[in-house]
Design a protein around this nucleic acid. Structure first.
Lengths: 191, 191
DNA sequence: GCATTTGCCTAAAACCTTTAGGCAAATTAG
DNA sequence: CTAATTTGCCTAAAGGTTTTAGGCAAATGC
């Protein structure tokens, strides 16, 4: 009975790796126990249940994403910052599809509050400092950017844009052009 | 042994209702069997397996969504059509959260080919006829609209926009204003 | 060195998935 | 209108996941 040295953090880390390999949906307490060559029940000393495990993986992914975003935003502004932030999401999803799916996991209010969700909003807001938007338009724009980033990446990952021309990379570039143009020329509310 | 009269279509229909009640994730062959007061194994004469059941629910949701879209687009053009189409997705997600989640289910290539996915793209393209876009910009715009609709609705459903002002309804309106403005003034590629 | 805490274990119940094989109801054919 | 066939739901059973309870041994602390 050699101890493997499990703890919640290592489980979340390993769960994230497992998610990238087999998909977040397939991450299971059993599968994780197998990976550590340990009996299933042993994991329940470290995570409350399956939902708790998934929540921890989601929090890990959100933190990693926020860290990457903070990294690339340093020293950038305007369209440069917009593009960098957008690519953080897209690249992360490509490198870590399971983790990206985890980041979409519906968190209950307390987990959401303890998550890096607010950091993400804050960083999008930082990008918008490069554009001339007044509150509450800035909030609208934060939500729009979040929608486009998330929507585009998840449709692209789902294969929505494969098998049709033009290449998705081109659309991505043009989408960022379009968003930049839109933010520079944000319309007033219509009648 | 009275026969209930099961078949794949009725199972998908009941599965869709179940999804709206308990969430698409919780739709299970067992739960569906309970709902028909029938033994679990009986369902396996009608659907191949759990994945097949989910696929059928997804196809049902995609069809319903496409039908609604076709309905509202008749006789509309320009921003009126854009708004109508966008609201089809948002309203459907609110009325049928489980079905909407089902519509996001990752379909394997053959199921995708047999789905109403192409109809959706076609209808977005129809909306864009009200704007002056040349191919391939039209394709870029189709993808952008899909991203915004899907992204916004899924973030909103996930509670991303609750608990912060302004109200999500306002942002939605302003988002459609913004998209309309963007489509009327679609930018050329940047250097 | 001894006591306590901690970590992993065995055991077991509950539920979901899926396959195999059977009988009875519904349908079709003569 | 029977008889043959097909179809629909059943029982049985194996295998996997989740979760709780209780136990022993390793690590830690005094």
């Amino acid at each position: 009975m050699v101890r493997v040295g499990l703890n919640a953090e290592r489980l979340a880390q390993a769960g994230a790796e497992l998610a990238d390999e087999v998909g977040f949906e397939q991450v299971t307490v059993s599968a994780l126990a197998r990976r550590f060559d340990v009996k299933v029940a042993s994991l329940y000393s470290h995570v409350r249940n399956s939902h708790d495990l998934k929540t921890r993986i989601a929090l890990l992914a959100l933190r990693e994403l926020a860290d990457r975003a903070a990294d690339v935003l340093a020293g950038r502004a305007g369209k440069d910052a917009l593009t960098a932030l957008a690519n953080v999401y897209r690249d992360y999803a490509r490198e870590h599809p399971g983790r990206y799916a985890a980041a979409q996991f519906r968190l209950d209010p307390e987990a959401a509050a303890a998550s890096d969700g607010a950091r993400h909003a804050q960083m999008t807001r930082a990008v918008l400092r490069g554009y001339d938007l007044t509150e509450p338009d800035q909030t609208h724009a934060v939500r729009l950017l979040g929608s486009v980033f998330h929507g585009y990446v998840s449709l692209e990952m789902g294969g929505g844009f494969s098998h049709s021309a033009p290449d998705s990379d081109v659309t991505w570039t043009r989408t960022l052009d379009a968003l930049d143009a839109l933010l520079r020329n944000w319309p007033a509310p219509e009648a």
